[in-house]
Design a protein around this nucleic acid. Structure first.
Lengths: 167, 167
DNA sequence: ATCGCCATGTTATAATATAACATACGTTTA
DNA sequence: TAAACGTATGTTATATTATAACATGGCGAT
């Protein structure tokens, strides 16, 4: 049984892991998606997605703009926000409201109702799926409310930061 | 068995209800809390809490500032943000990230892990507790992550707006 | 070849939030 | 009682995040 370590447990994000696997899988999925949906795989979009994939650190729009400037791209706010909107719409990035920042999606290609674990110390973010998160929105149905979407952000300490803090 | 209708079902917030009960209970609890904790119950704090209690519409900081100006209070941003921080710390208000806005707390006096149902149309907000929300954070524990806090915001359509939309 | 689409670029500004310092007032303390 | 202190409020300036509106340029379809 071959398994992709990035899919098995979200918590690996907080540990050392073979990040090349994360990176390459995601980039390939992105290329494939754009090809299949006939969307333009432009240098700018690739670059921003690369930034988000670098590690699992969320990036603010203005951080991304700085990095774009360094790479010779335009660097006024709409540049970043538009690419981010694109990535989010296509399911390759998420916005973390807690941090006003953006992360690459870790559950590529599947429709999902994401939840996030955010380390308050290192600010790395792991994405977990609905099942993993213990979230069952069906249960919320007794209310006269038609649920369309849920934003779930769990804040705490990741395993690496717990370890450091204990020393 | 006497029960406070504001406690029974969060969804009553989206319907007509005896809002005087909501308002008076909350204001009394606030007064009691400040007295017991020896915190200053100032005109400014009372006024801002009143604004939040008016209906169940979240208010942005700058909306509150406008209302404060109309009431003869100072109206520069720190005025509002400081009072809001106070109310949040004391458990009488919450921030709704989705809306960059603030609401009075509906579960006064009890420690709780709140979740919110936000109507995308009328933008009213109902607070529900963790159990009601269908979120079970205990289940998220298999991860090597120490949970400290969760932000849960469910977006959808409230019963009143469903009814209107159906006509 | 030109039209239209769409990504990118630019300019300006809106919306949200905080830092740093000033004032005012009641309480404690010398 | 006067000085010292703590805390709430007020003010000025600025930081941070995000969007509106319009311009340019490439590229494929007709």
């Amino acid at each position: 049984m071959k398994k992709n370590p990035t899919q098995k447990y979200a918590s690996i994000i907080f540990k050392k892991h073979n990040h090349n696997v994360c990176f390459n899988n995601a980039m390939k999925a992105f290329q494939k998606h754009c090809f299949e949906k006939n969307l333009k795989l432009t240098p700018l979009r690739i670059k921003v997605f690369e930034f988000l994939l670098r590690d699992h650190q969320p990036l603010g729009a203005y951080q991304i703009l700085d990095m774009l400037r360094d790479s010779g791209f335009g660097s006024t706010p709409p540049i970043a926000y538009r690419v981010l909107d694109f990535l989010i719409e296509q399911g390759f990035a998420h916005k973390i409201k807690r941090l006003n920042a953006f992360v690459a999606c870790s559950h590529l290609g599947s429709t999902h109702s994401p939840a996030f674990m955010i380390c308050r110390k290192c600010e790395k973010v792991a994405e977990i799926n609905e099942k993993e998160s213990g979230v069952n929105l069906k249960k919320a149905a007794p209310f006269d409310f038609k649920i369309e979407e849920a934003v779930i952000e769990v804040i705490g300490l990741c395993i690496s930061c717990i370890t450091v803090e204990a020393t």
